[in-house]
Design a protein around this nucleic acid. Structure first.
Length: 770
DNA sequence: TCTCCCTGTCATACA
DNA sequence: TATGTATGACAGGGA
């Protein structure tokens, strides 16, 4: 019978899927909800004791409208409806993106499929040439695509198990079957992933638009620069462009500056980006380590990548967290990092990066330290204390008209942050060492284990999810095992029709678990018309996790196992029947048995009867406890009216009814508690996975950011080094700074102005926080 | 014997 | 008010 059931179940399911695939609509509802108990029972299996609770409610409510809102049967109802609707939708070939993502998430632990496989690293870090910088936008986007960031970002809205974890094992099996079929047709799994295809299209679009934007922006920038130069020439001031001998040099320098900056940061043509680039250019080198000042690059760079999500805000949030953690960080690491000996400006100006070779295989911890050392001090008071350069006059290079000046002030200028205090003549040698290492704080004891796991993932080509799973397995010693998929009962998952995903919602698991919790004494009525429906509803799935709770009220522990398909063995149909009837019905003819065994059987059955059944039999109640408990009120009262019952009998009957209902209510209550605990476990599991993923993303971002800053720094140095005043002498970095204004012009301004703008910029995020 | 867990039951609140 | 449900608390029984 079992094999027949399995055969029929799988065969029908596959047949239905095939029919659906070729366009034949199969309405399974007709078969499942029709009054064909044997077929339904074969397919869905017998019900459990739990589901008997709403016998009367489910009567005449085949669609489930009469199910109590809190009933566990409602879970079955919704699960069944959802599965049926999905089966029907097969011919329409719709695979919801979020569900596929959820599927991927749940396959991660097995390492078979993962949408967030770690790539070897961001494109930016693949090489250090300028070529990489020419398309940081695309690079970042591609990196996002490669590393499953797009999925991760989508997960931000679908991470909650209640949403994304709604796939049952049946769903997964269906998707898997479809996938295999399409693989045979030459289609990969990514074909189903709408987000994947969309990301590919986006990337292509970006690649196309990027070139156009770059060209447009370059043209506008050149025009703006030429305009500025012309205006400046009209002022008659000692603008290099108009000074004989120095004109070509300066003009060439500015053009080169613009070109280099454009080449390095072709993010787009919008003003926001330009402001960001301006902050990038200002965030260039400082002679003495001022890592605190360099974090100004954070937001602008990330905003420049222009994703639909407010990455700048996210980073600010992240930085705020880091700031908090940085309060407690020890400064030893930063001291080492910041006390680099002065020497080559390129190597010393930029806190860590120049001296730290970019190593893709570097430990995440190390990488994080490096990235952090330069990134997190935007809001540090050190910035406020920066001495202002004495020079306050506007250079001839700066356009003299008010518009340009306003734009200059209005634009981002963090140049001062990058110039070495020594050059300002007011250097504070202790500034660097005093700065804490925020990421070091982030990577404190509590996070090192996760980081190390991520290190493992990056260094060893480990799937980070696997790493997190490894971590979970380590954590599983704590009594509550988070990995339910390792339950021995998961063997039953081979039965596609009787398994439910560990990610199923609590409602689904409720229905599933009830399929084998057996209450034989009061839980079964062979003459109940609604029983079949109950069984159908109650056997939607089998929850492996409940194997450990399967020791419920079964009839005979020695005869019954926890297997759900054996649950019907334990039903007790005897109730208040007379012992003689029981004997004749259940026992072999007396002639073939010894009296002792007969008595044994009687004793055994007697023991199996509940107290209320004993009482009912003693009081000669003329109907079964099952009827007493499960009949609707109207029918119950009608039943009572048919018999002439004494007050004691009536009282007992009402007590039996009350206790029976309460007993099942208690069972439901306890099962709900278990469901809650299990779902909480899954939530914790998901959150841990998300946490690991976010940490990994953060490290990746920091790494790419550090590399971008390196390149911007070198470009700034190159541009600034080529600038010459009217006498052909280079400008002093301690007195002047380059500023990339919002209108596309590149300005050389005194450091005092740059410092003022730095302070002004610092206040903005603070105000925004308020 | 003690402890833990499961189960049934009661009391109570609530719908 | 009657009925049903949910849940905390308690007790009994088995391992």
């Amino acid at each position: 019978m079992l094999s027949l059931k399995k055969y029929l179940t799988e065969g029908l399911l596959q047949f239905t899927i095939l029919l659906s695939l070729i366009g034949v609509r199969v309405d399974v509802d007709t078969y499942l909800t029709s009054q064909l108990p044997p077929l339904r029972e074969i397919i869905l299996g017998p019900s459990s004791a739990y589901t008997q609770t709403q016998f009367h409610n489910l009567r005449n409510t085949l669609d489930g409208y009469g199910i109590h809102p809190k009933s566990i049967d409602l879970d079955n109802y919704f699960t069944a409806r959802r599965l049926l609707s999905q089966v029907r939708a097969l011919d329409r070939f719709q695979v919801p993106t979020t569900e596929v993502n959820a599927w991927l998430v749940h396959r991660d632990p097995e390492g078979s499929v993962s949408g967030s496989q770690p790539s070897s690293g961001l494109t930016l870090e693949s090489s250090s040439g300028l070529q990489d910088v020419t398309s940081p936008d695309n690079g970042v986007r591609e990196s996002e695509t490669e590393q499953g960031f797009s999925e991760d970002l989508e997960d931000l809205g679908a991470v909650a198990p209640a949403v994304s974890g709604d796939l049952t094992k049946e769903d997964i099996d269906l998707i898997d079957i479809l996938w295999r079929q399409d693989i045979d047709l030459g289609a990969g799994r990514e074909v189903f992933d709408y987000s994947h295809r969309q990301k590919e299209q986006d990337v292509d679009k970006e690649l196309q638009d990027g070139g156009e934007q770059e060209d447009t922006w370059a043209g506008e920038g050149a025009e703006a620069l030429a305009r500025d130069l012309l205006v400046d020439g009209e002022t008659g001031e000692s603008f290099p462009a108009q000074v004989p001998g120095g004109e070509d040099q300066t003009a060439l320098s500015l053009e080169e500056c613009l070109r280099l900056l454009e080449a390095s940061c072709p993010f787009g043509e919008n003003a926001e980006f330009r402001a960001n680039v301006a902050s990038i250019t200002e965030a260039v080198p400082s002679e003495n380590e001022s890592p605190a000042l360099e974090n100004s690059l954070f937001s602008p760079l990330l905003t420049g990548t222009e994703s639909p999500f407010d990455l700048e805000q996210q980073w600010q949030d992240l930085m705020s967290i880091m700031e908090m953690q940085a309060m407690e960080v020890n400064t030893s690491a930063s001291e080492i990092l910041y006390n680099a000996p002065p020497g080559d400006p390129l190597s010393t100006n930029y806190s860590l990066a120049p001296n730290t070779p970019i190593n893709q295989n570097v430990s995440l911890h190390q990488a994080s330290l490096g990235g952090c050392s330069q990134d997190f001090s935007l809001f540090s008071s050190e910035v406020e204390n920066l001495p202002v350069a004495s020079s306050s006059t506007l250079l001839p290079l700066v356009p003299s008209n008010s518009t340009s000046l306003n734009s200059t002030f209005g634009s981002t200028n963090l140049a001062g942050l990058f110039f070495p205090p020594q050059l300002n003549g007011t250097a504070n040698d202790t500034a660097g060492p005093e700065l804490p290492d925020p990421l070091g704080g982030l990577l404190d004891e509590a996070m090192l284990d996760e980081i190390s796991l991520m290190d493992l993932a990056i260094e060893e080509g480990f799937n980070p999810v696997q790493a997190s799973q490894l971590e979970e397995e380590f954590d599983s010693d704590s009594g509550l095992s988070l990995d339910s998929s390792h339950s021995p009962s998961s063997l039953s998952s081979s039965e596609g029709s009787s398994s439910s995903s560990s990610s199923s919602s609590s409602s689904a698991s409720s229905s599933a678990s009830s399929s084998f919790s057996e209450e034989g004494a009061v839980g079964y009525s062979s003459d109940s018309e609604t029983l079949d429906l109950e069984e159908a509803e109650g056997a939607v799935g089998y929850q492996p996790e409940y194997s450990k709770f399967c020791r419920m009220s079964y009839q005979d522990p020695s005869q019954l196992s926890c297997l759900p398909y054996l649950e019907h063995v334990g039903h007790n149909h005897t109730y208040n029947m007379a012992p003689s009837a029981l004997d004749s019905a259940d026992l072999p003819p007396p002639s073939t048995l010894k009296k002792s065994s007969k008595e044994k059987q009687a004793d055994f059955l007697d023991k199996q009867m509940s107290r209320d059944e004993h009482r009912a039999r003693a009081m000669k109640i003329p109907f079964t406890n099952d009827k007493i408990i499960n009949l609707p009120v109207e029918e119950f009262n009608e039943l009572l009216s048919k018999y002439q019952l004494s007050e004691a009998q009536l009282s007992l009957i009402r007590d039996i009814r009350r206790r029976g209902k309460n007993k099942m209510a208690a069972q439901n209550c306890r099962k709900r508690k278990l469901d809650t605990i299990l779902n909480l476990e899954r939530d914790v599991e998901d959150l841990q996975r998300d946490k690991a993923r976010l940490l990994r993303e953060k490290v990746e971002f920091l790494r790419s950011l550090r590399q971008m800053k390196q390149k911007v720094q070198s470009l700034y140095q190159e541009v600034f080094g080529r600038l010459r005043d009217e006498n052909g002498r280079p400008y002093s970095p301690s007195q002047y700074a380059l500023q990339y204004a919002g209108d596309g012009s590149v300005l050389l301004i005194p450091r005092t102005m740059a410092d003022q703008q730095v302070r002004r910029q610092e206040r903005k995020p603070k105000d925004r926080r308020k």
